[in-house]
Design a protein around this nucleic acid. Sequence first.
DNA 1: AACGTGTTGTTAATGCGATGTTAAAATGAA
DNA 2: TTCATTTTAACATCGCATTAACAACACGTT
Lengths: 229, 229
Amino acid sequence: MNENKLNILIAEDDLNLGFLLVEFLESRGIDVKLYRDGELAFNGFKGGDFNFCIFDVMLPKMDGFSLAKKVKIVDPKIPIIFLTARAMKEDKMKGYNIGADDYITKPFDEDELLCRIMAISNRLDFSNATCGKICQIGKYEFDFENLSLDFNGQIKRLTTREAEVLRMLCISKKKVVKREQILTAIWGENDYFAGRSLDVFISKLRKYFAEDSTVTIDNITKVGFILNC
Amino acid sequence: MNENKLNILIAEDDLNLGFLLVEFLESRGIDVKLYRDGELAFNGFKGGDFNFCIFDVMLPKMDGFSLAKKVKIVDPKIPIIFLTARAMKEDKMKGYNIGADDYITKPFDEDELLCRIMAISNRLDFSNATCGKICQIGKYEFDFENLSLDFNGQIKRLTTREAEVLRMLCISKKKVVKREQILTAIWGENDYFAGRSLDVFISKLRKYFAEDSTVTIDNITKVGFILNC
DNA sequence: AACGTGTTGTTAATGCGATGTTAAAATGAA
DNA sequence: TTCATTTTAACATCGCATTAACAACACGTT
């Protein structure tokens, strides 16, 4: 309910344009964070709580399309607008296939960009964006900020990783959370070892919930996990 | 329920362009209706069941913006794309203020228009909270993303393959889905063993639907299967 | 109708890859 | 260093898609 506020991540290496954008959008009451290359942007994205992205297509370290692909794995619904100097059709198609919501050719008009952002965000469904800081899981209370799991006043302290994994399961309670999504969002990469690591944490979490049998973390082979409670 | 199908109203007085658009979109499996002036378009809109609009800005009888305003009163959420020959900023702003979702300057590329339509319609909330991927099959509710089959709140979990096969049958409910099509799409090859495997999965799915006799998966020898419900 | 051939229905056995779990190594912060 | 935490390794277990095997069926031919 409180998260109806736009929180935009911008990835743009031309800092002149970048700062201009930041200033303009902030003047309109929008939260903005600027990153100057693809990798920084992705790390920023993992850490932050963004609900909108604007990516330059050409970026150092990782180009806008690759960045979009990874971001879409973590949050498939997040809207992305691409900025590009070129007006190539192939580029546009590529962007749309990845799931671009819009495409703007530089130089562009700031007001028009704002209009496009608004047009898209008006359709946004913020409803399940955040499940609050504290999440009820069966008889447990999970506080992500405090890394704590409270069971009848008995407080179990979680490690960062444990909390991160549990948070992802919590956000989509009773829904399948894909392995790929968790791995990309938390480990940043989706390889064998990260995968095994995730399994270890799932195993740990299950133990923590052992005292309330209504809480289970179920596996869907080859797909992911579901937190049921 | 399964209004996941696009039904587009086009208002365009240049009939060359109009018919071209209709033909192109219909070839992509989209329902389209063309009107050649603003008033006809609005009457058509009231009578029909459209979920997407494309308006030329300059139209006889009633211009695109006025048309949009009236349409938005009837259905405030309906997406509208404007077409215009002019690339005037004022026009664009006016369009966005009315609630345009996009803005395309003529001449434009048909593929790009399709991409933009898709980008917008993908964000569309066709159903209620549960974002659209759910399919009603008799008394069952099939959720492909969650690999679940809900019967009166009783949830049966599906495996990846089961869900994939069921999805293909669902997409063409009550229509023949060719063996070849399923095999190529899911198994990637159309040989004897893949075929037998498919038969095994069909058999499993039939069992899952045993509790509602109105749901049947019928075989068409040498051709494929039909999901009837 | 009876036959024969190829197709489909169904169940069960198999084998492999994915996951569960625990413990040991690595990492890294204090 | 020590301690907490995460990663890697090693082994146990489980679930799933495939394969096999046989029964039932469809359909064209005689």
